[in-house]
Design a protein around this nucleic acid. Structure first.
Lengths: 346, 346
DNA sequence: TGTTAGCACTCGTGACCATTGAGTGCTAAC
DNA sequence: GTTAGCACTCAATGGTCACGAGTGCTAACA
């Protein structure tokens, strides 16, 4: 996989990728010798370019145009040539200024982060909330709304709040409900929702629930409360910025892009994948095997609180996006958001 | 305003509008005589068309093209010529099948309604949640999360639930919190949030709060809990369907449309306006004085529960949208959603 | 007097074509 | 190994031209 390239080839590949990133146009041998001062003539550069094309790092849209990097070319560039310098404290401060989360709720923070990500990167920002099933149980409370109707409030370890109205057959007093929630908060504390679910199933089968009315109520109530899969929420911001990019200049490609960003399921799947890993991850082009995202790249990072990963955020842009700028932004934003969640817990 | 048109002019205007709605292209005199069997020659139709143009109902993109209806033309068509037949029970049933709200929370129902609206109309669906400040207070509960941190749950008369984490200086026991919420639920029941806010301000100034610790806590807690304006939530679905429309075929118009739909503020303003009125409302083109929505029309209706209007929904499409199809869809969907909310309350 | 056929005119569209220029590959000389 | 030179390719640009849909006007007709 990791082919060896001579120093010269590397330099030229780097030059081509970087020129292409700013111009979005095929770059020719002449242009390279002009912009970068290799002591080489266009003809020599051409020889190298022919080799690089042979190896699959470059391709030409037609004979008389310059070369553009292929997916493989970008891959190599990112893996081996790109050096991402860390942000200076000053830059970090500058970046941080954009984020004002004071007193915001999670539901407000997330789209806001998306907006800022997109504003800073000039591409589209993505923020995905935690998967409900992987959150850790902390607290559950019940509120009697009317006869047979309860409001359930579930608070996860990471401070996420979910509420839901459920219907119940029998009318329970607020006191009974409190008893129930005390019981549950002790029993279920520290388990993930998936764990909670199987525990509930098991216990409901057990002998003793028959004789313990409260226990039975508690278990079945919480089962109902937690049963539905809450769909993953994803926030997409700045789709229109993507339309400014020359690769999406034609009506067809615009349509496809917007459709893809709008359907969200695809994005959720992609972000889900990156959920596992630590740090910044990069998906280049249709590496994701998703034809819809052809020509796009995704830079993501998961964010977390002390209890673990809670969600994923990132930037989606054209394959030729300015990685050296976007990667630190995504990285730092994830750190920042993690810090906010951390602070919120205490 | 309501100019008089001869029967013949009306017929021809109607024919032009309807042809234009399906073709999206300028319609010429010849085409009209072919498609509709007026016993008139193209030349006569041309005379009428010239008159209609004079009066501002039509315009021609250039001399040798047909005519297209102006905003005023559409306005007249909708006000005077269009007859919207009610849906048959069968159609209603058919439509209703698309909506499955069982057990869904408001936050899930709204985007779902948007998706269905857009799917049925083939244009973009809009659904806006109620304005927080105009909801009616029903219940407020506090949950101690940790030292100095409370989760506030607010339930409106219409069953909307909002929660928020607030920071408090003193550590209140769950018992104290219950006392507080009991007090508030009595005091504030039935008031809108705006009314609640001014009441809180007034009472906090009063003498007796000084001597009644609980009262003071209650008032200031609820003030903090209700102080922030929760941004209006609006769900836009099916933006990509709009891109299929020939009026948005050029890259520029696509970009503008997507930008407009993405920014949301404009849409919120428009839907806000329609919030007041009962029944279906139609905004044609830049009638809204919003250059951004040039070429678009908006068909909206507010939905309500027994306590009053709670939100607005609608369809945004090209000015030449199929009103006779869209209007009943929007109307019936609003009724349907109102019914769901009604049922939910009981 | 209202209707219509005829006709000259307008103007966007699409085909065709020549020109231009950026870029390539190859070869031969350095 | 490098480079200058050269023939070749091909997208893009812009100009010309024919076509056709549609118009407005006029004169003839019922």
């Amino acid at each position: 996989m990791a082919e060896e390239l001579s120093e010269r080839s590397q330099n030229i590949l780097e030059a081509i990728v970087e020129d292409y990133i700013v111009s979005a146009e095929p770059v020719g041998s002449r242009a390279i010798t002009r912009r970068h001062s290799f002591n080489l003539s266009p003809a020599s550069v051409r020889n190298v370019m022919a080799d690089l094309e042979e190896m699959g790092f470059l391709c030409s849209p037609h004979t008389s145009a310059g070369r553009i990097p292929t997916e493989k070319g970008f891959q190599y560039y990112i893996d081996s040539l790109l050096q991402i310098r860390d942000l200076s404290p000053r830059e970090k401060q500058e970046l941080q200024k954009n984020y004002r989360f004071n007193g915001m709720k999670m539901e407000e923070i997330m789209p806001e982060v998306g907006r800022v990500l997109s504003g800073l990167s000039k591409y589209a920002g993505l923020v995905m909330a935690p998967k409900f099933t992987s959150t850790v149980f902390r607290q559950m409370e019940f509120l009697r709304l009317s006869r047979g109707q309860l409001l359930v409030i579930y608070v996860s370890e990471s401070g996420l709040v979910q509420n839901k109205v459920i219907e119940v057959a029998e009318d329970l007093s607020q006191q009974q409900l409190e008893q129930i929630s005390n019981f549950l908060n002790q029993e279920l504390n520290g388990l993930t929702i998936s764990q909670v679910r199987s525990k509930l199933e098991d216990e409901l089968k057990e002998e003793r629930v028959r004789f313990d009315e409260m226990r039975k109520n508690a278990l079945s109530l919480s089962r109902v409360a937690l049963q539905d899969e809450v769909v993953n929420q994803i926030y997409v911001s700045g789709a229109s910025l993507m339309l400014e990019q020359p690769e999406f200049a034609t009506p067809q490609s615009m349509k496809r892009l917007i459709q893809t960003l709008e359907s969200k399921q695809l994005l959720i799947d992609l972000l889900d994948r990156s959920q596992q890993a630590q740090g910044v991850q990069i998906f280049i082009g249709s590496e994701s095997r998703q034809a819809e995202l052809e020509g796009c790249s995704l830079v993501t990072s998961s964010y977390s609180n002390p209890k673990g990963v809670v969600g994923t955020l990132g930037v989606i842009g054209p394959m030729r996006m300015d990685y050296s700028k976007v990667i630190p932004i995504v990285d730092f934003t994830a750190q920042l958001l993690s810090r906010v969640l951390d602070r919120d817990l205490e």
